[in-house]
Amino acid sequence: MSKAKIRIPTPLRSFTGGSDEVEIDGADVRAALRHLGEKHGGLLPRILDAEGGLRPFVNLYVSGKNIRALNGLDTEVKDGDVLSIVPAVAGGVF
């Protein structure tokens, strides 16, 4: 079990009581997300689809690396890692 932090993007902070960072435990990204979901209800359906995979246009980074380029949700989480949830597009403006 590793202790890590997960950074929360602005649109999801309504689920975390306004916090921009949440402490989580988990040996891999899947376990870390499960822990995040237990702490803050309603958050996981924004990130994962019904089958438990990452939703399209959602990217997860572990200490700066996109998990899609690593082992996906099985990517290992080490003590002190910082996870970030980042939408694939910059949001924005027409």
Binding site: P11, R46, F57, V58, A88, A90, G91, G92, F94
Partner: peptide
């Protein structure tokens, strides 16, 4: 659009 993941170029204007 949904608040997250949003749609590029569109504002949800809900918050």
């Amino acid at each position: 659009p949904d608040v997250f993941p949003g749609i590029e170029g569109l504002k949800p204007l809900g918050d």
